[in-house]
Design a protein around this nucleic acid. Structure first.
Lengths: 231, 231
DNA sequence: TAATATATGGTCATTTTGACTATAAGTAAA
DNA sequence: TTTACTTATAGTCAAAATGACCATATATTA
């Protein structure tokens, strides 16, 4: 880019849309808000909004997510810009989609700003969304499935201490498949990503499982190197 | 995004920048253009320009690349939007970066539009570029290194028929590493991605190698499934 | 105390990997 | 025309990883 100054009003606006994936009770969820005003009032949609002039695109994503849902302090990663000229009905709007993985139990949803409600929806129970939001979600979910096989994610989707079965169920939920328990453990053990805590699960009606944590140092190494997590 | 209409002039313009990686004689290159006008006149930069109102972001990338360098008919993939408010000096410009892999021999460079020149530069011999173009290039190169290990790319970087050594040298150039010839062949053979042609290399001062093609059907399958190309 | 759920650890044949070695088939130089 | 040199192509082998299992342990609840 460069050379000539831009003609005015090449697009009408840039917006943000956030895909926040949550995990709870073995179920993968997506966070939606209900629009309280505007042309899609009353409909469920991805949390998002307008970028302002002085703000970086990344900052806009964090600000909008916080003001609409109350969620802050998370790692948002850019997914893709969606730039079809007809994706938005009344004008030319390009949107930049972000995504994040969170543990639902760590956040209470507080609808605000232009959102009248905010809720988790099972990934397979998402209603029809406005604009191209369903397409954005599909793209993001596909991206997540790919990512999970090549990077040690899961970090943010689970509580700080978790059992190996919880971790396995996370992978099963994302990949929509069943895994062998024993082989899963062996694979994890080999990459030394987990540290065993001195604690056990409580209040379960069966033998209590040991609790584990992620080892952040190893985690960073493995992210850089990439992993082949073919399960 | 949605709700309120956007305030006017939230950003001044959206632009495109293209990372076109080429491969020739075992060397990985990047395509740059020399600006013939505008605020960076005379400097080498990534090919790019302004998106117009009625055009999709993807289409803009193809149009700009064609008009600046003469390259058309390639598969451009979106890389990332760069949205720091200070990335462009005189106004607020967000850019969407694209990237592609091509076989240099298939394209002759024809500078046009606002470009006074267009040239291939060795990936490690890139001059200082304007704006955040060096950062975009670094991001893109890193992305390529990651991608090459998880997808059967290489398709577009090589001639239609190629030797196994050429393919190996491609991987070595991208990953900046040496690979074992025998093991490389075994791995390739196992995934059945290649079809042997009934032809041999010519005009080489040593035993001629057999020529291979990619099998497009298997290629598509492997792209969907993803591969673990740990070499 | 028995039924049951999950935890945790182990077996074993098969496949894959990584590091080498050996031979083949060409050209170019002596 | 022999020899040197270069790359092609095939094969070996021990070590590591995988996939499909099985066995036993430890907890709760009927």
């Amino acid at each position: 880019m460069d050379t000539n100054p831009a003609p005015d009003a090449i697009i009408d606006a840039l917006s943000i849309d956030c895909l926040i994936f949550g995990f709870k009770d073995g179920r993968l969820d997506i966070l939606l808000i209900k629009h309280g005003e505007g042309i899609s009032k009353g409909r469920w949609a991805l949390p998002g909004g307008w970028i302002t002039y002085g703000e970086s695109v990344d900052d806009a994503a964090l600000r909008l997510l916080q003001s609409l849902t109350g969620i802050s302090n998370i790692y948002l990663e850019q997914l893709k810009a969606f730039g079809d000229p007809n994706r938005y009905p009344t004008k030319r709007v390009v949107t930049v989609a972000y995504f994040a993985l969170v543990n639902e139990e760590n956040y209470s949803l507080i609808p605000g700003f232009t959102a009248s409600d905010a809720q988790w929806f099972g990934i397979n129970k998402v209603p029809a969304l406005p604009y191209d939001h369903n397409a954005i979600l599909d793209f993001g979910y596909h991206h997540l499935k790919h990512k999970v096989r090549h990077e040690p994610i899961g970090f943010n989707l689970l509580p700080e201490k978790f059992t190996l079965l919880q971790l396995q169920e996370l992978y099963e939920a994302i990949l929509e498949t069943k895994l062998d328990k024993s082989n899963f453990r062996r694979k994890l053990a080999k990459m030394k990503l987990l540290k065993k805590c001195d604690e056990k699960q409580k209040h379960v009606s069966h033998r209590a499982a040991g609790l584990y944590k992620f080892d952040k140092r190893i985690y960073v190494t493995l992210r850089k190197k990439g992993i082949a997590f073919e399960l």
